[in-house]
């Protein structure tokens, strides 16, 4: 199965991932090769097989719905590129 440059641009948009235009061709080729590899799975009949999400078939452990963490907002926001008044700043979304 082969992808086109258009497909790659669409996927990159879904992933919000900037790709240099001069690299689109090589991504198109590499991703098409990866898809060929993955399509090998279709040769195997897997009807009736239960999908395996966890290697030990376990489910997520639950805990009591209680507060366990102290507020560390200032500590974590010290890493942020731009904050003001305890809020993360991004370019204006609504005029």
């Amino acid at each position: 199965m082969s992808l086109t440059a258009d497909d790659v641009n669409k996927i990159a948009h879904l992933a919000r991932l900037g790709i240099d235009s001069q690299d689109i061709e090589s991504y198109t080729k590499d991703l098409s090769g990866m898809l060929d590899l993955m399509t090998q799975m279709s040769k195997l009949d897997t009807s009736g097989i239960e999908p395996m999400a966890h290697p030990l078939d376990q489910v997520q452990r639950l805990r009591a719905d209680a507060v366990t963490e102290a507020d560390q907002r200032a500590h974590f926001q010290a890493l942020a590129p731009q904050v003001a008044d305890g809020l993360y700043l991004v370019p204006k979304v609504i005029e």
């Binding site: 993955m38 799975m41 195997l44 897997t46 097989i49 395996m52 999400a53």
Partner: peptide, 10 residues
């Protein structure tokens, strides 16, 4: 499909 193959490998 990959998760089903995963079970067979397991």
């Amino acid at each position: 499909k990959a998760q089903k193959v995963r079970r067979l490998i397991s």
